[in-house]
Amino acid sequence: MTDEVGLFEHADGAIPRREHGYCVDDVARGLMVLCREPFPSEAAIELSGRYLTFLAHAQGPDGSFHNRLGYDRSWHDRPATGDWWGRALWGLGTAAAGSSAPWIRDAALGFFERGAHHRPIHLRAMAFAALGAAQVLTFEPTHRLARALLADAALAIGTARTDQPVRDEDWPWPQTRLAYGNATLPEVLLMAGHLLGDEEALARGLAMLGWLMDVESNDGHFSPTPVGGRGTAERQPGFDQQPIELAALADACATAFAITAEPRWAAGVRLAAAWFAGDNDAGTVMYDPVTGGGYDGLTAVGRNANQGAESTLALLSTLQQDRRLRTENP
C-alpha cells in the first residue's frame, strides 16, 4: 500500500487504488503503528521517515494540515484543522516519544509543536491531537504546549453536553449519539487523569470506557457502533462495523489497564483482537492471512473484501496492543 511518496488510502481487494491518492489520516496512523514497534527493522525505520516526510510536506505554515494528496502529487484541499490535523499530531507525538531514530524523534516533536496551538471546535479532532500530546508528556512531562492541549481536550470532553436540558444517567456520554473512534474520548480523560493528576478526569474516563464496553458488547463479543452511529434507542448489532472502532477500544483498554492493572481492561484488548479473528456478530474473520490486510467492514452477511489502509492499520494496531499485553502479562 506504500510507494515512494506515501500510503495509498483505498484498495480494490488487496490492490492499491492509485486514482484515490493518499491522505494524512492514514499516513499518520501508519507512522503511529511503526513507532509503536518495540524492535523495528531498518525497513520499518525507513518507512517511518517516509511517512514523517509526508506529514511535514502536508503541514501549512500555521501548523494546520492538508489532508488529500492526489497521485499527481498535488494537494486537493487547503490546510485546516479537521480530524486529519488531530491524527497528524497523534502520529507526530507518538513518533517523538517512540521512534528508535533520534532524527525522527526530534523532527516529529518540532512538527508537533508547530501545530499544537490550534483548538478546533470538532471534539474528535481535539481528542486525536490530545493523545499525541499525551505521548509527548511521557518523555517530557513539563512540555507546556502538550500539557495545555491535553488539559483543554479533557475539558472539552467534560463540558460537551452542558448545554443539554436533561442529562440521562443511562447515557453518560458527552454527545447525544455514539459516532466514530468512540473510545478515544475516554482515553483522553484517562491520560489527563494519569499525566496531569486530574483524579476527576480519570474516574470519569474509566466510567465512560466501562459503559462503552457494555454498550458495544453482544453475547460475549464486541459489537461496535456501526458507520452510521448509534443513539439512545438503537441497539446492536448494527452494520456496517468498522475495524477502526476496535482499534480505538484496544488502545483505550490498554491505557486503562496500564493505569489500573484491572483485569477487565486486559480482557477488552483481547476481545478487540478476537473480533478480527471472527468473534463478532457475523462470525466472520476480518483479515486476510495471505496479504496481512484488514477487511474494510463487517456486514450482516459477511465482509467488505477491500483491504484499505485504515482497516489494515486498525488490524495491526489492535494486534500490537494484544501482543504487548500478552508479552508483559503472560
Rank of each mutant, 00 (worst) to 15 (best):
P224Q: 07
D198Q: 13
D214I: 13
W211T: 09
L196H: 12
M213T: 02
L185P: 06
L190H: 00
F222M: 09
M213D: 08
D219S: 13
L189S: 03
S223R: 07
D198K: 09
D219N: 13
G197N: 10
P186M: 00
S217C: 06
E200Y: 05
F222L: 15
G193A: 05
L209W: 06
L212S: 09
P186C: 01
G228I: 02
L206C: 04
L206Y: 06
G220K: 08
S223G: 07
M191D: 01
L212K: 11
V227Y: 10
G228L: 14
V215M: 12
L206A: 04
G193D: 09
A207Y: 13
A201E: 11
W211F: 11
L202A: 06
L196G: 03
H194E: 07
G197S: 09
E199C: 09
W211G: 03
G210H: 05
F222D: 12
A201N: 10
F222Q: 04
A192F: 06
S223I: 00
S223K: 08
L202T: 04
P226H: 07
D198V: 13
S223H: 12
L195G: 04
E216Y: 01
G197D: 09
P224A: 11
H221C: 11
A201D: 11
G210F: 00
G210C: 02
L212D: 09
D219V: 03
P186R: 04
M213S: 12
L195A: 05
D219W: 02
G197R: 15
L190Y: 06
D219P: 02
N218A: 03
D219H: 15
V215L: 13
A201L: 13
P224V: 12
A207F: 12
L185K: 11
G220N: 08
M213W: 01
L185A: 05
N218Q: 14
H194Q: 13
H221F: 05
R204F: 02
M208G: 05
G210A: 04
L209K: 07
T225N: 02
G197T: 03
W211A: 00
L206G: 06
A207E: 15
A201Q: 10
H194C: 02
P186D: 02
D214R: 15
E200G: 13
G228R: 14
P226R: 06
A207H: 14
R204V: 04
D214P: 12
G205M: 06
E216G: 06
V188M: 04
M213R: 15
G210P: 10
N218M: 14
H221W: 07
V215A: 14
T184L: 11
E216R: 11
A207L: 09
H221V: 00
L202Q: 08
P186Q: 01
D198Y: 08
L209S: 06
D219T: 04
L212T: 14
A192E: 02
H194G: 05
D214E: 15
P186Y: 03
G228C: 05
G205W: 12
G210S: 01
L206T: 05
G228Y: 08
S223E: 15
A192K: 03
E199T: 11
A201I: 10
V227A: 11
H194R: 14
A192T: 11
V215G: 07
D198H: 13
L189V: 04
D214Y: 12
F222C: 02
E187P: 09
V215F: 08
L209I: 06
P226A: 07
A207Q: 13
A207D: 15
